[in-house]
Design a protein around this nucleic acid. Structure first.
Lengths: 169, 169
DNA sequence: ACCTGAACACCGTTCAAGT
DNA sequence: ACCTGAACACCGTTCAAGT
């Protein structure tokens, strides 16, 4: 046995973190494993499937034991920001498997379906925008804009607004 | 004068609506204009710039005169859903030019910055997810899931939750 | 100013064939 | 079961040259 499916996913996550989603091609993942591109298709149906598996891996670290929705959101955000372009990968992949995630189910128990959905969409959107901005800053494309600390605070305020709204229902 | 910049943007929007974002390549936009791919670069710096111009066109139809945030959100959603993959195009493009949009400014006047940002991220996220689901259903990939009417209602409830939260602040 | 033609360095995916 | 090698049908972008 040479490479397994999880070897492929792990390699893809390394390429993602090192090069970004734009350059996370099947060909580069194959190169990371010292293998021909066509070899990947023995482990994975197509690129979309691979991205979904990567998303599962990224979100899998979120602690669902907590009773505190704000805490779960913060942890989800940590997971999304923990790898380059992680928010993009997860947001795109989870748009397909609507409501299939354990995080959504857990938030649904705590807040109801509408609240959970609203909150999740906000967390993805904010994380995506945060990641884009931090990247633009690193590249020197963007000089101004909110600092990381301000982005953390703005995230927390947004979550607070939504949770207040859920309770006002 | 043969083609202008707005001819290029208009052609790109036609290709987008007919084929979707995945197939909205520079080469296909060029073909739509009966022109070589390289000719586009006389009008537009690169594909990203073209996508931003398309996003401006899509959002440009939103009525900002209203005093009602929920109405503006509904109108923005209408604009995003009015063209194939419109939500994706606008969400991606507007992540770059953070806060640069007139819609965000208008919502900011009515609700404050945090509320505006929270609401906008939700509208983009919900529209993106709606568009993905409706497309999957059309392709027969997805049989179950919420109907268009239920999606409209879920959108309105989410907006309501956020507006309640803003007021509870 | 606007466009052509040709080229460069890439993609995702398939498929027969090897071990 | 896992991989190679070669191919197919694409990409975005650049650049000299034409009108």
């Amino acid at each position: 046995m040479r490479n397994s499916r999880s070897d492929v996913v792990a390699a893809a996550l390394r390429v993602l973190d090192a090069q970004g989603l734009e350059f996370c091609s099947m060909r580069r993942v194959a190169a990371e494993l010292d293998v021909q591109p066509s070899a990947l298709y023995h482990h994975v149906a197509d690129k979309q499937t691979l991205l979904a598996l990567m998303a599962d891996e990224i979100v899998g670290t979120v602690d669902l034991g907590s009773e505190d929705p704000a805490g779960i959101c913060a942890d989800l955000r940590r997971a999304l920001l923990g790898i380059r372009d992680g928010a993009d990968v997860v947001a795109t992949a989870s748009a397909f498997r609507l409501g299939a995630s354990a995080v959504e189910a857990r938030l649904g128990e705590l807040l109801g379906e509408d609240g959970a959905r609203t909150l999740l969409l906000y967390v993805f959107g904010h994380a995506q925008s945060t990641q884009t901005q931090l990247q633009a800053r690193e590249l020197g494309v963007l000089a101004d804009g909110p600092s990381p600390v301000e982005l953390d605070a703005s995230f927390a305020r947004g979550v607070g607004i939504i949770l207040d709204g859920v309770r006002a229902d």
